[in-house]
């Protein structure tokens, strides 16, 4: 994982975990790497990972069983919410970017349809 260097790492790892949940790479109730393993994998200070897990737990995205480890939420509702949040974010970024370029909503939909049909190409 490549980090942006001007943003706290814990926020970036939270986002990384949420993305993996949204894409289904992390399954419901699946065991998460231990703090130590995750630190090693991402080459990040242990305390940073511990802090990340605390935040994820506070938000109900993961939960921990004492002495066993941390797990992805069991709540389907939470998983859908994480997916929807990400989809909303992607669509709103797309729409805002095109509005800045002066596209009307109608034009935006037309362009998107053309793109999906493969009618627009880069350059």
């Amino acid at each position: 994982m490549k980090f942006k260097d001007n943003m706290p790492i814990y926020l970036q790892i939270i986002d990384h975990v949420k993305l993996k949940i949204a894409t289904g790479e992390y399954k419901r109730a699946e065991k998460l790497e231990s703090v130590r393993d995750m630190a090693q994998k991402l080459r990040v200070n242990h305390n940073t990972i511990a802090k990340t897990y605390q935040f994820l737990e506070k938000d109900g995205i993961i939960f921990s069983k004492k002495g066993v480890g941390s797990f992805i939420t069991e709540s389907e509702e939470m998983i859908s919410r994480i997916r929807e949040e990400r989809i909303f974010f992607k669509i709103s970024t797309f729409v805002n970017d095109l509005r800045v370029l002066g596209y009307s909503d109608k034009k935006m939909i037309e362009e998107l349809e053309k793109f999906l049909k493969g009618e627009i190409q880069n350059g």
Binding site: Q40, R43, N45, H46, T48
Partner: peptide, 29 residues
């Protein structure tokens, strides 16, 4: 870097002097 991360423990403390700031920032708290 990997060895330093693996050696981090709750009971001990590390102080690393460097002027290679960019190498170490994820390592440091």
């Amino acid at each position: 870097i990997e060895t330093i991360i693996n050696s981090q423990r709750d009971e001990s403390c590390m102080l690393i002097s460097t002027h290679h700031v960019n190498y170490v920032e994820y390592l440091l708290e």
